[in-house]
Design a protein around this nucleic acid. Structure first.
Length: 261
DNA sequence: ATGGCCAATATGATTGGA
């Protein structure tokens, strides 16, 4: 079972890259972020033609998440609980049956939080607190739970090309990393870090300033696993070559392979 | 050495992203 996450930065602009990558990598489940379109406008057909079911939670212009699955959806629930005022499309959860097993998967687009000093940063931190409560609740079920997405969190200095330059940024400042560590401390496993301690395993390179050419990236897209799912982890990786394709997203896909047999 | 982009919007300037 291959599960992936990819912030596509507009699904309409990325359909060709997405379908090419689906053919190349054959993931079973894909969590997408920043689809940036309303549900009726989501280009389902070319994805369904490759054998995927599609669950979307979008909005006009910004945000937007989706889950693609080669297996059927038993349940689909949009929205992170805990704040009726939050109308951002940043979260969708699905229960997926794969053979005799069921898997709970969430596609997560955590707020950026910049600039720090505006209300965007407390919105990010509160969103992380809501995510903490959601995860605490779900872990009681002792399921195979996969939380995949763009967390907008650089977990550690080895996950950014120049840590000193990022110390006050909403993606890396100490309070952000502390909130992320609190999520992990609930008992989650970071798939990439479970399989490698190498520095420079980036998932995002800014469009600006030749960041890709200079390999000035960030690791901010993560696949977090519940204990039951982590027991099944076989390998994980980052498809960085996709960043060099024509018309790339600024993020690349991250995937984890689980042995559910 | 420095700076460099991209997407959506009724759109040609602004906002958001990271």
């Amino acid at each position: 079972m291959r599960i992936a996450t990819w912030n596509v930065n507009s699904i309409k602009q990325r359909v060709e890259n997405l379908t090419a990558w689906l053919k190349e990598r054959s993931p079973d489940i894909v969590c997408l972020q920043e689809t940036k379109c309303v549900d009726d406008a989501f280009p389902r057909e070319p994805i369904e033609a490759l054998g995927y079911n599609v669950a979307v939670h979008g909005q006009k212009t910004f945000n937007g998440v989706a889950i693609l699955s080669k297996y059927r959806f038993d349940e689909v629930t949009p929205g992170l609980p805990g704040d009726p005022e939050d109308d951002h499309a940043r979260f969708i959860e699905a229960v997926i049956s794969a053979g005799s097993r069921a898997l709970r998967v969430a596609s997560i687009y955590l707020p950026n939080g910049n600039p720090v000093g505006t209300d965007k940063y407390p919105f990010k931190i509160k969103w992380m607190e809501r995510l903490y409560h959601y995860i605490s609740d779900r872990l009681k079920l002792e399921e195979e739970l996969v939380l995949a997405g763009d967390y907008n969190v650089i977990p550690a200095p080895e996950d950014v090309h120049n840590p000193a330059a990022w110390i006050d940024d909403a993606l890396f400042r100490p309070q952000t990393r502390e909130s992320f560590r609190a999520l992990l401390a609930l008992g989650l496993t970071d798939s990439i870090r479970a399989t490698s301690d190498a520095p420079g395993l980036y998932t995002f390179w800014d469009y600006q300033a030749g960041a890709w050419q200079k390999n000035q990236g960030l690791r901010i897209d993560h696949i977090l696993l519940s204990p039951r799912a982590a027991d099944r982890l076989v390998s994980a990786g980052i498809d960085r070559h996709v960043r060099s394709w024509e018309k790339p997203s600024d993020h690349v896909p991250v995937y984890a392979d689980l042995d559910l047999n």
